[in-house]
Simulated assay, not measured.
Amino acid sequence: MARIFDTHTHFNDPKYKELGITTEEIIKEAKLVGVDRFCCVGYDVPSSKQAAKYALKYDEVYGAVGIHPNEAHAINQSDLEEIEVLAHANKIVAIGEIGLDYYYTRDYVEIQKEVLKKQIKIALENNLTVMMHIRDEDGKVDAYNDALEILVKMKVKNVIIHCFTRGYELAKKFVDKGYYISIPGVITFKGAEELQDAVKKLSLNNIVVETDAPYLTPVPNRGKVNTSKEIIYTVNEIAKIKNLNKHDVIDITSRNAKKAFKID
């Protein structure tokens, strides 16, 4: 029987250390509900180094390294060079999370685009998946359209759209290019009808699951710190929406994750 693959989590987030929650504890508890693989994702150089270390330390853990778009304006060439070095580390399966974020400010749009392109180039040169963070102003899709334009222009084939929370028509633009849509615990939230409709209409062959822990804890534990064990609620909600057995959801999304990350 297949086990759940949490395709995007942050063991490297300082919140866990502040709360005294260890990575060993997170992995152990997650295994009890059927999770057996994790991708620990970086968002700047220090967290990417930590992600690479976790991938080496734990058999169940893989790593993604990259610089978050909200950090793009504050980096220099040496930071990108460090990401390029980390891309060669053992069990690094993606460059991420990288992307475009216009939610808080549009002051650095062009800088974000340039840093994104440089990191996509690292992914392409190392045959790694691109783990995309895309966030827009409410009601707008500029960041999504700009990101898709860059991905297509650079001929990127292997992409995960991390933490997707929008509707079907937008998801379909990425699915039509062969990209995977990653579903977080938001799917369980009251008011997530647009995302729930997208999941209902999307083929399970185009979906992977994630926690984005320690953030976005699903119902019924919303408001508490998120860990990988909570992903079972996301799986259950997808199964409910699509009227499928949860084991089928686990089997197919885990297979998709392994294919996306090019692992056995």
Rank of each mutant, 00 (worst) to 15 (best):
Q50Y: 11
Y43N: 08
A64W: 01
Y43E: 04
L80D: 10
D107M: 02
G66V: 06
H133I: 07
I75W: 04
E125L: 11
G63K: 05
H73P: 02
E84R: 15
S78H: 12
A51N: 03
Q119F: 09
T129S: 11
Y43H: 10
E97V: 03
E125V: 05
E84M: 03
S48R: 04
D59C: 05
H73E: 13
Y62R: 09
Y102M: 10
L100M: 14
Y104D: 08
L116S: 10
N70S: 09
R106N: 14
A51V: 06
L80K: 01
K113E: 14
H88E: 13
S47V: 01
V61S: 09
V85F: 12
I98H: 01
A123C: 10
A89H: 14
I95D: 00
Y58V: 03
H73I: 05
G63R: 07
E84N: 15
I122H: 02
D107I: 00
V41Q: 01
Y43S: 13
L80P: 02
Q50I: 08
N76W: 05
E82K: 04
Y102C: 03
V85D: 12
V93K: 11
E114H: 02
K57P: 07
A87Q: 00
A51H: 00
R106T: 14
A64F: 09
V115Q: 08
M132T: 04
V65I: 05
E114Y: 01
V45C: 09
K57R: 15
G63A: 15
I111E: 14
V41W: 07
V93M: 10
Y102S: 09
S78L: 14
A94I: 02
D107P: 01
A74W: 03
Y108P: 04
E125H: 06
E97M: 10
D101H: 02
A94D: 00
S47D: 01
N70W: 00
N90F: 10
V61Q: 05
I122E: 06
Q50F: 11
K57F: 04
K53N: 13
Q77S: 15
